[in-house]
Each structure stands twice: as structure tokens, then as C-alpha cells.
């Protein structure tokens, strides 16, 4: 009986460790209180249009190489590059979640990657959509499963 109890406890510990229940906050961020800061000046947009290029699984030393004339324009102020490293377990959907919402990838995300639906409660996409920004998207259709109704135009591959 004791062995059975230990076995059951170890099974529970295993599933709790590798497949934890998601603790994603169920709330959206609120705008900063207008009585504290001059938010219209502090958060005034610097640019009118933004192009976000996500290149999955690309070595950063290729991008920064002097032999890459197009990407070297980044260093001339026409854009900025950011290297995002996501720890294993990692497939496309948890990578997108980590990038857009700051979620920490879990093992269960690998299973959910195949049947991912709109699950995020707050993200950069939600914030931009709620600010009446028109977002167009081209690329991996995992984005379309995560954000099925947030894009002005889109094409998934």
C-alpha cells in the first residue's frame, strides 16, 4: 500500500513538473493613469509604421556580418535587430508566445502546438489591435491560429 502511494505521488510530481497548469494572467493591461504622467508626451509614437520581421532559427552572426549589405543597414539606423533565445522545449507556437506575450515555454506547449487556438489573454498584438492599429501578416500560419481575428490582411504558409 505504501509503495502504491509513493508510486502515485511520483506520478503526480512528474505531471506537475512537466505539464504544469498554465498560469497565464487572465487580464489585459490597462493604460497608464493619466493623472500620474503626461502620457501623450511620454508615450508619443516615434514612427508611424512598424515592420516586424521574425526570422526563425537564424544565426545572429550571419545577420551582423559585413558581407550582408541589406541587414547591415540595421546598424545605420534604418531598423534594429534583437536576438531572442527561447529555451527548450521549443517549437513554433511557444516561440511566438514567448516573443509576443512573454510566456515561458512549457512541455505541454509542444502538444498544443498542433492544435493551437486563440489562448493568449494579453499580448503586443492585442494591445495594437485595441489601439486601432491595422496589422497585416505574412508567414507561418501558427500566428493565424493564435490570433484568428486580429489581422487586417494575412496570408499563412
Amino acid at each position: 500500500m505504501i509503495l502504491y502511494g509513493i508510486f502515485l505521488l511520483s506520478i503526480l510530481l512528474f505531471f506537475n513538473g512537466f505539464f504544469p497548469i498554465s498560469k497565464t494572467p487572465q487580464s489585459f493591461k490597462n493604460d497608464p493613469p493619466k493623472d500620474m504622467l503626461p502620457v501623450n508626451d511620454t508615450y508619443a509614437p516615434v514612427v508611424s509604421k512598424l515592420v516586424l520581421v521574425v526570422i526563425d532559427a537564424l544565426r545572429l552572426d550571419f545577420v551582423n556580418s559585413q558581407l550582408m549589405p541589406l541587414t547591415s543597414r540595421l546598424s545605420r539606423g534604418n531598423g534594429c535587430s534583437n536576438n531572442v533565445s527561447v529555451q527548450t522545449p521549443t517549437v513554433t507556437m511557444p516561440r511566438i508566445k514567448a516573443l509576443i506575450a512573454g510566456n515561458v515555454p512549457q512541455f505541454i506547449d509542444i502538444v498544443l502546438n498542433l492544435a493551437s487556438t486563440e489562448q493568449l489573454k494579453d499580448s503586443l498584438i492585442h494591445s495594437a489591435y485595441n489601439s486601432n492599429k491595422k496589422i497585416v501578416f505574412y508567414g507561418d500560419d501558427t500566428w493565424l491560429k493564435l490570433f484568428p481575428s486580429y489581422f487586417w490582411r494575412y496570408e499563412g504558409t
Partner: peptide, 27 residues
Amino acid sequence: VDHNVTRNVLKEIEVKDWDIMILHYLG
């Protein structure tokens, strides 16, 4: 490379009625 997607991205660059464009490529 999906040339249809590339063509549509080039169209978007000309149309400019959007505020944010997201492109996701596989390196």
C-alpha cells in the same frame, strides 16, 4: 520561398494602409 507571399508582401509595401506589418520567415 513562397513567391505568392513575396508578391503580396511587395504589394503591401506599396499600399501602406497598414500600421504594423509582421513577417515570419524560417531561417
